[in-house]
């Protein structure tokens, strides 16, 4: 009996995690909409990932894709430190997009570092929409 309960428990875990990232993203998108952004489009989010910024080279991290690769379902690598970056898409990495503060922290760091400015609510909404629509 305990065994069955245990097995059922593990079957529930992925469902709960999936719900958690969906709820986090929904809250963030609602907040961006309150800022006046929307509707959000996955294609725009994908374009942001690949957009080349500034005059630097890929090895200097001139785009989000330079470290994260063009496919958020695969692992990336930090261009300078060589550190592996786990996939961004929650479909393959359930740890992603579960904590709104963490999401915002990385938008701040990486938008400023790569684009040289903070991202707009529209850009953030598009990007999250892109990540969550990947299967």
């Amino acid at each position: 009996m305990k065994k069955i309960a245990f097995m059922l428990g593990w079957m529930v875990v992925p469902v709960v995690l999936a719900d958690l990232h969906a709820a986090t993203v929904d809250d963030l998108l609602a907040q961006y909409q309150r800022d006046g952004a929307g509707p959000f489009r996955a294609e725009q989010g994908q374009a942001l990932l690949n957009q080349v910024n500034g005059s630097g080279s890929a090895s200097e991290g001139n785009s989000c894709a330079a470290c994260h690769t063009t496919d958020p379902r695969g692992a990336g690598k930090h261009v300078k430190t060589g550190k592996v970056i786990e996939p961004l898409a929650p479909a393959v990495n359930r740890d992603r997009l579960q904590d709104a503060d963490k999401v915002e922290k990385w938008f701040v760091r990486n938008c400023k570092g790569t684009l040289g400015r903070v991202c707009t609510s529209q850009e953030k909404g598009d990007f999250l929409t892109f990540l969550t629509t990947l299967k």
Partner: peptide, 12 residues
């Protein structure tokens, strides 16, 4: 940390 070896590494 805002200009951390060419990257932004801001924290709260």
């Amino acid at each position: 940390l805002g200009e951390h070896f060419g990257e932004n590494a801001e924290v709260s």
